[in-house]
Write a protein that binds this DNA or RNA. Sequence first.
RNA 1: GGAUGGUUUCCCGAGUGGCCAAAGGGGACAGACUGUAAAUCUGCUGGCAACGCCUUCGGUGGUUCGAAUCCACCACCAUCCA
Length: 383
Amino acid sequence: MAKYTLMKTEGRAKRAQFETVHGTIQTPVFMNVGTIGAIKGAVSTTDLQQIGTQVELSNTYHLHVRPGDEKVKAMGGLHKFMVWDKPILTDSGGFQAFSLAKLRKIKEEGVYFNSHVDGRKIFMGPEESMRIQSNLGSTIAMAFDECPSSVAERDYVQKSVDRTTRWLQRCKDEMARLNSLPDTINKEQLLFGINQGAVYEDIRKYHADVISEMDLDGYAVGGLAVGETHEEMYRILDEVVPHLPQNKPTYLMGVGTPANILEGVERGVDFFDCVYPSRNGRHGHVYTNEGKKNLLNAKFELDPRPIQEDCQCPACRTYSRAYIRHLLKANEMLGMRLCVPHNLYYYNNLMTEIRQALDEGRFAEYKKMRLAGYEQGLINGHI
RNA sequence: GGAUGGUUUCCCGAGUGGCCAAAGGGGACAGACUGUAAAUCUGCUGGCAACGCCUUCGGUGGUUCGAAUCCACCACCAUCCA
């Protein structure tokens, strides 16, 4: 059912569309992260419609812990539950084995977690992850993988990657079974595999080649932006993306800054996601064409301008930096309720502009122009 | 008029002879965050020619080698008694 159509290329950069049961995704795309089925910062799915969100991303582990995937299924699946009819991608819970490292044990069969909510024991392996994601009924399910630390030993990474490959086969088998069951919510659920290998290029390429043989709906590069430098990340993308199927979408997981995204697009990435726009928005950091700004800074106390001139987001059309700063300082929820949608709008709009530039064959020029703007407002190298 | 308690660095508030530029909060200021245990976390908050010096604990004057800490007087605040 899913159909990836490459419409234009510029160097390695790809302009494509991806048709799913929940609608067509124009790529390159930035998916808006709502881990627990909601974007933190009091942003509703109605808001998402207004700020141009194409794909919402939620998390298997978190929704399994609370409210429970069975309950979501009983409510008709995640789309109905959160009232969102466009595509949803669910991350598998594999990343939580990394981010909740102190609360888990990794074995061949899967990962044993202690719930971050109440400490109870939770087991999640490939089959469990697929079952949960099937219960959620997401458009795209991610394979259950292990994300090794960027400083992990080579031997460990090699073993981990091979286990991730075995897990991927189990995911594929389980999804095929689940998609054929009569009461499955989304019988056309798609599966993306995940490339790992930390910063070892040869392991990365080896793993990419292995999973490319498995005929999945899409391929992700995981385990980046977890401590390595930007240069290492770009180098790995340079090496790995060409080893992934070019007739399938490529997803760079968890990345990143606007600059990271421009670099990723240039290297052939179609899908991105990152908590930055939402988390930074909650913390009063907002994205502009002149780089990221911390609205909490005293210099915005009497700044009558919108966050970004000409921005069409609700915050920028109505309020001044000074007022939003006041809200943030006063810990008034409206502050983040304005900053988070602004940031998501900024990212979504950035992707729209990227697609337009690709359509018109001027991506290289566009990228250069944007990066130059970000350099101006450089905050400790974060752009 | 009398009694008692109090006056500490931006605010609240510890500190009752040296280890005190002075705990702890708050606020202010700044930083971090990349498939979200994050409306969280960290740093910093008297001045300077800065491993030392200067100024600061209501005011003034004492005691002492040494005082935010003890004494005297004064000012102001709070509560109670007339």
